Simulated scan of single mutants.
Amino acid sequence: MDFHPSRHTLLPILVGSANDEFTLWEIGMHERLVSKPFKIWDLQACSTQFQSVVAKDSSMAVNRVAWSPDGHLIGVAFTKHLIHLNAYQHPNETRQVVEIEAHSGGVNDIAFSLPNKQLCAVTCGDDKLIRVWDMHGQKIYSFEGHEAPVYSVCHHDIGPIQFIFSTSVDGKIKAWLYDDLGSRVDYDAPGNWCTAMLYSADGTRLFSCGTSKQGETHLVKWNQSEGSIERSYSGFRKNPSGVVQGVVQFDTAQNQILAAGEDNQIKFWDVDNINMLTCIEADGGLPSLPRLRFNKEGNLLAVTTIDSGFKVLANADGLRSLLAFRSISCSYNARNSRPSQQGSLHLSGGVSQQ
């Protein structure tokens, strides 16, 4: 899931699903604006390897969705080889821009970046590579060095220095500048398995959250200058079985709050305190490891539910934003939305639980 980065006349959220489609919801009015099932735009332009893969198994799911920084483009990464870039036209139109066979195997993450003020898409995949693409589908960079499938990417810039963090499923963290000189760092992620990295809204703090193969979760703040862990946040359950159930997902809000989904709950921390602030069940119905996403202002939080939907939770400021569009006490069709509690609403739309 990904909230629109800038639009204030609507409250749109982009959602990818396990049933191959991406949807666009207008939170304030509780409407599904766009629903786009997967289809191959140009099979003949794809590799023979990909054509053989889809001939044997045509099923496809969305691994990741992302808005471009200006909110004009939608990036969709799929479980087999491809990414799609779509242009978004307010309020409910999308247009195909480019289909890219980005990786061999699954495309595990997609992010937009602006190296040298040129809009690019950064992807990573099962083929152990990180690649950078222009908006015409041309490959600009291909970074090699990971020894396992790459799980996530995180673009950032500090002044004139622009770089990409990448994490692989063997627990390695690497950093790349936009050149061909290789990785600049090689860290071990806590837990040595799948980890995602995020910067705070002001770009000054770096966090990561990951889960070990034994099912232990590590949410930490990094000391960037030393490449060491500065703070580890407590409050995660110790897995008694030692069997991994999945990877805990997290996000950070502008008001210096961290949130992570575990134990059918959402857990919250202040970034300056290792002890958990609180945890909530959000009226129930959350999966064991819910996915979640804050909006840019940090006053709305979307979280997935076990019935292939998602809930949107709001603090006082977020609730005022929602009420500015329409009262949340209305009744809705079961397929589109239904009221949950004051401060939240529940939408159904085939959200991926991967």
Rank of each mutant, 00 (worst) to 15 (best):
M1V: 10
P5L: 05
T9I: 13
D20F: 05
E21G: 06
T23H: 01
E31H: 04
L33S: 01
V34P: 06
H72T: 12
L82Q: 10
I83E: 01
H84V: 11
R95Y: 12
E101Y: 01
V107W: 02
I110L: 02
I110K: 00
T123N: 13
I130Y: 07
R131M: 12
P149N: 14
S152R: 04
G159F: 13
K172M: 13
K174I: 02
A175T: 14
L177W: 05
D180A: 02
G182Q: 04
P190M: 09
W193P: 01
C194N: 02
C194Q: 05
T211W: 12
T211P: 08
S212R: 11
K213Y: 09
K213F: 08
K213V: 04
L219E: 00
V220W: 00
K221N: 09
S225I: 04
G227I: 04
R237D: 07
K238T: 15
V244A: 10
V247W: 08
V247P: 02
V247D: 12
Q265A: 11
N275P: 06
P287A: 11
R291D: 02
R291P: 01
T305I: 00
L313W: 03
L319Q: 15
R320N: 08
L323F: 06
F325N: 07
I328E: 10
S331W: 10
G343C: 00
G343P: 00
L345G: 07
G350P: 03
V351T: 14
